[in-house]
Amino acid sequence: MSATIHRLSRNSAPSLEPMMSLVAEDLNSVNAVILARMQSRIPLIPELAGHLIAGGGKRMRPMLTLACARLLDYAGTRHHRLAAAVEFIHTATLLHDDVVDGSAMRRGKRTANMIWGNNASVLVGDFLFSRSFELMVEDGSLKVLKILANASAVIAEGEVNQLTAQRRIETDEDQYLDIIGAKTAALFAAACRIAAVVAERPEAEELALDAYGRNLGIAFQLVDDAIDYVSDGETMGKDTGDDFRDGKITLPVILAYARGNEADRKFWKETMSGLHGDNADLAHAQSLLAATGAIDDTLARARHYGQRAIDAIGMFGNARAKAALTEAVEFAIARAY
């Protein structure tokens, strides 16, 4: 068993603390940029944006930009504003997602759309997207602009793809992976890759960081989709079974549907199409997921992609940063246990 596989199979509880400690000083600078750039002469904008930005998020995506810059021994400050741009893109997509999904809870708090309404949430999301592009332009790198602008477009494509797949039980695993690769992994990949651009490192290192972020993002979403059925609202910061009630076709459902008998498949067709969806149906869905091993296999896939992420940064030499980025992968997967 290799050292990296051993790390991914560790018994102690991993955390983001090593990465947070690694980038603490840089993150203070990023938070200052975020606070300054979310201001507006329209009071509702910083009020609504601050509700989500200061609402308990771990800042994982901007921390990845900062940690990857440390991995490359980058000594400048350009990555501070770009990490803020990454956080603005992420926050904007969350505001829009909560409107599309009609979500009532995020990170254990009422969503902005529940407090201020859908219109305000969408418009403030647009404001944050605009702020992110201002920060990209100020950086002056067309390559950075291309990477982050492309990620923003891909995220939107992924969300539309997910919307078209909603309540369609015939959605297959390839389309599902395409969806999560776009709506989640694209920003993880871009957040990591831009560190190599500002550090002026060769393309091979850019691609390695892209692969790290992309595989981490896929693993992260696989875990999210699994724990939607097995965790509790207090742990998740949202209601258990939200994906089930929304008719989202995630990998656990795809696997359970494929492995079920005729009665099981009939149940999935009816519930995913919206004919049923109460707590009793959720409980039955959870029993089918357990019986078919769908949750366990989804988490096994997450570990596979997590290992690919860890392997992708094997070429780099900064031991402290590499260890922190490795543990970030382990943390993302350990959320399910």
Rank of each mutant, 00 (worst) to 15 (best):
V30H: 02
F129Q: 01
A300T: 14
M38H: 04
A323E: 14
E262K: 11
S287K: 13
T93K: 01
E138Q: 12
T65C: 14
D139S: 08
H276S: 15
A319K: 13
A280L: 15
A285C: 15
R168D: 13
W268V: 05
G241S: 06
V160D: 00
S9W: 10
L142A: 15
A334Q: 08
E327V: 12
M38F: 11
G274Q: 05
G50L: 10
R214Q: 11
G237R: 01
A32S: 14
D246M: 05
R193E: 15
R193S: 12
V197I: 14
A165R: 02
L128A: 08
A283T: 15
D239Y: 10
A334R: 03
A165F: 02
H304C: 11
I89Q: 00
P14E: 11
K322W: 08
A204L: 14
K266N: 11
G274E: 03
N150V: 13
V137L: 12
G140W: 07
Y176R: 00
E157D: 15
F129M: 12
D174M: 14
S231Q: 11
T326E: 15
R214N: 12
D243Q: 06
H79C: 08
I310N: 01
V329K: 01
T171G: 00
S40H: 04
S15E: 13
A149G: 15
M60F: 14
Q221T: 12
A186F: 03
S273H: 08
K109Y: 10
G306P: 06
L145D: 04
Y229R: 01
G56P: 06
Q162S: 07
A3G: 14
V154A: 11
I194L: 13
A196E: 03
D281R: 01
A309K: 00
L82C: 05
A312G: 06
A321P: 10
A151W: 02
A290R: 04
Y337H: 13
R301Y: 10
N261S: 13
F133D: 01
T4V: 15
A294I: 07
N318F: 08
A294R: 00
E157T: 10
V99Q: 01
D297V: 07
S231E: 09
R168E: 13
H304D: 15
M1Y: 09
A312H: 04
D278T: 07
E205A: 11
V329A: 03
G274R: 01
F244R: 00
A199S: 13
L35D: 14
A186I: 07
E170W: 06
V154D: 08
